[in-house]
Design a protein around this nucleic acid. Structure first.
Lengths: 218, 218
DNA sequence: GTCAAGAATATTGTATACGATTTTTTTCGT
DNA sequence: ACGAAAAAAATCGTATACAATATTCTTGAC
């Protein structure tokens, strides 16, 4: 693990080990990852640019914390970006990726029937990543990925799919509809369905966030 | 200038003092900015995340260099993002910003008549920044700004408006049309015109880049 | 018992130092 | 004179050290 300090820290944030508002103490991180403070500092700088971490001069950096408004706007932005990806993908998806989309939806159906939450989580990740890269524009792909990462500390990752509160058939049906539009080459529909999908995720999150917070004691 | 090392370096890149492919030697930068290598290293890390700088393990970082394909896709992405901003701005622009847009277009007309290149450059910057923030979504605004920065080393900044090869009335007319659509609340039109505008900028750039390269000896 | 001020502690920001790796220069053989 | 190998120089990556600032703890007055 010589080469991945910022990734290690990013993972702690995305996985929820470090939660929004938590201080990133350089020394304890240095001890935990068994390097000196310098690599930690550089990693934190990088993470601040990627938006996961908030720098405060002369004080500890903290995990980025979003207000309700900011979170709302973040999801609005994510809807537009992912919608853009879906629209492009509908027009440009490679044959290899078309096949993968079809296979993924079949797997998704089975996982959904089995009620396997963690697996559904992974499928959701791959589905969106597939559409990001399917846009066939490295910068749009990068924007979509970065946007997802910024939201991830608040988003589903780690507990939404994990809980019994969610009906797995809902995201599955939405994914299916998006996949169908993309495979049909219906760009406008793919975009609209994706925006709706992201919006729905935001509503789910609003319901579940309070529960998660009381469970963790934020 | 105690607090702005990464900004200093970013400016050198955006202004063209450092050009794509140039090495970012830590020691010489440290001497030039009169600090030790540590702050320089951290600044470079930050810039790599923002996309201006390309990190190469165990070798000097260099100013990000884009292939023709990458540049083309970058402009495509920029068109979509700025188009999105224009679309949102058409629906949400605050009264203060509406007034500023009107004032800016009047100034633009005068500057255009006078043939003042550098001034036209500044107006272009403010016009786009105004639309970015006019979208009233901090994340979309941030995405648009970052995208512009990433492209800036290749983009107009520094020599397009400066040259006699460009007809200042073309961007002026395009800006006017965009402004009109936004002020009319015509989101679809505002987006379409903005995408066309960015596309036109890309075409101009393709004509001018070879000239700039031979002038600078890349 | 509570609040404030000052001392002690902890933490960040930068400099210097040194080992590791890469790049350049030199040297030697053909 | 040209090319390859080895030595020298330069440069990056990390550790340690120390100064500057923030935070916490202690002490004392009301």
């Amino acid at each position: 693990m010589e080469k991945g300090i910022s990734k290690s820290i990013a993972e702690m944030i995305v996985r929820g080990t470090l939660r929004p508002g938590d201080r990133l103490d350089e020394q304890s991180l240095a001890e935990k990852l068994d390097v000196s403070r310098m690599p930690i500092r550089e990693a934190i700088q990088k993470l601040s640019s990627s938006g996961l971490v908030q720098l405060r001069p002369r004080r500890s950096a903290i995990v980025r914390r979003m207000s309700e408004n900011e979170l709302s706007e973040a999801f609005e932005a994510m809807g537009e970006i992912e919608g853009l990806c879906a629209s492009y993908a509908a027009q440009r998806l490679s044959e290899a990726r078309r096949l993968r989309v079809k296979a993924l939806m079949e797997i998704s159906r089975q996982v959904c029937d089995a009620g396997n939450g963690p697996e559904a989580q992974e499928i959701d990740d791959e589905f969106h990543a597939l559409i990001h890269s399917g846009a066939r524009n490295w910068m749009i792909t990068a924007l979509a990925r970065e946007t997802r990462i910024k939201v991830s500390p608040y988003s589903a990752i780690g507990f939404i799919f994990d809980s019994d509160l969610i009906d797995l058939t809902v995201p599955h049906r939405q994914h299916s509809a998006i996949a169908e539009a993309i495979l049909d080459g219906d760009a406008a529909n793919a975009r609209a369905l994706m925006i709706e999908h992201v919006g729905h995720n935001y509503l789910s999150l609003q319901e579940l966030l309070p529960l998660a917070q009381e469970r963790n004691g934020t």
